[in-house]
Design a protein around this nucleic acid. Sequence first.
DNA 1: CTGCCGTACTGACAAATGTCATCGGCAGTA
DNA 2: TACTGCCGATGACATTTGTCAGTACGGCAG
Lengths: 201, 201
Amino acid sequence: MIRLLLADDEHLIRGAVAALLALEPDIDVVAEVADGPSALKAAKELRPDVAMLDLEMPDMDGIELAEALRDELPKTRIAIVTRHARPGVLHRALNAGVLAFVPKTAQAQSLADVVRKVNAGQRCIDPDLATQALLAGPCPLTPRELDVLRESREGATVQVIAQRLHLTQGTVRNYLSTAMTKLDAETRYEAAQRAWELGWL
Amino acid sequence: MIRLLLADDEHLIRGAVAALLALEPDIDVVAEVADGPSALKAAKELRPDVAMLDLEMPDMDGIELAEALRDELPKTRIAIVTRHARPGVLHRALNAGVLAFVPKTAQAQSLADVVRKVNAGQRCIDPDLATQALLAGPCPLTPRELDVLRESREGATVQVIAQRLHLTQGTVRNYLSTAMTKLDAETRYEAAQRAWELGWL
DNA sequence: CTGCCGTACTGACAAATGTCATCGGCAGTA
DNA sequence: TACTGCCGATGACATTTGTCAGTACGGCAG
């Protein structure tokens, strides 16, 4: 019997998936939670074999949650389910010890198989996504460049970014400039947009 | 027997929801499609009683699809399901003749009830969302202002926007300026971001 | 018929932004 | 040791931007 934890903030999906997987004779859905912290808490109490996590969740994103689980409960196998799979996120997920990466465009029937494979310790990555990630290559941006891009995405001015990151305006502009060059963008907002689409933010 | 059409580009969710609703004795899922155009085609052929549409779909957004359905098959009752319900979208959906508006954070069990209510011609709007929409009020932006904001969201420069909309740079800047004033934003990107969050783009 | 509003444009000005060259410090590493 | 790369900063420069004032035209409600 595979003991499964489900984390997804969309009740509708979580409920439906739970109902579907519960029909499988060898799968037992032991917990359903809606956010990262409660997933962590439930996992510590119930020690599931497999944790199936949504990538987009309030409070704690799926990757952070995966990292926390890896550190605290290394025996738990982790599968990530996501809506729009951005290539860069795959890199980070794999580094966090995630075994499976499934887009929500996958067939519902295939989910049970993913759970079984992950439970057996096998990797299970969407092939399209894997090639996309390979083509995009690793992120060329430095941590600081990522920081300023993250702030830019919300439309912050250089002044505001400089304050928030405790930097000079000139420094911020330089980081933005190099990031724009690396991403072949005309404006920082375009750069931020692109970096996000590639999953680097 | 309620004949239901399901449109959602996420197979995983669509499959799970279809499986759940098919268990209901009075609901018959007659079609499952992944995008707007095929939903329209399927609806014309099968004449479902209720169409349950995802808001975010490739090619044709849920609202456009609802409008098309209203024009071509006015007898079809429409329910919209969405992930992040932005208030402004509700306005547009209601104008498009949509009866139900359900966030994906709703309970899976409640879905069947929504289908039944909609089939009976009753409205079924998430109360939280309704109050949010009331508080935000109607969109104060003119159509042209919305146009330039839409372009801004992808990080386009004034030059590019002017070209794409066949306007002068000065005109574009003026529209951006008024939009920023109305939205109380420091930069056009912040304005675009805010307008999007309110569901006006 | 007369405001009022949305659309579209012009010109001018100050401020914000993007680019470049250059510097110093610090951590790997060949 | 010398080299490389990231971090942080400075100063100067040309562009881009946001803002403001003003013009003009069409549609529409009072």
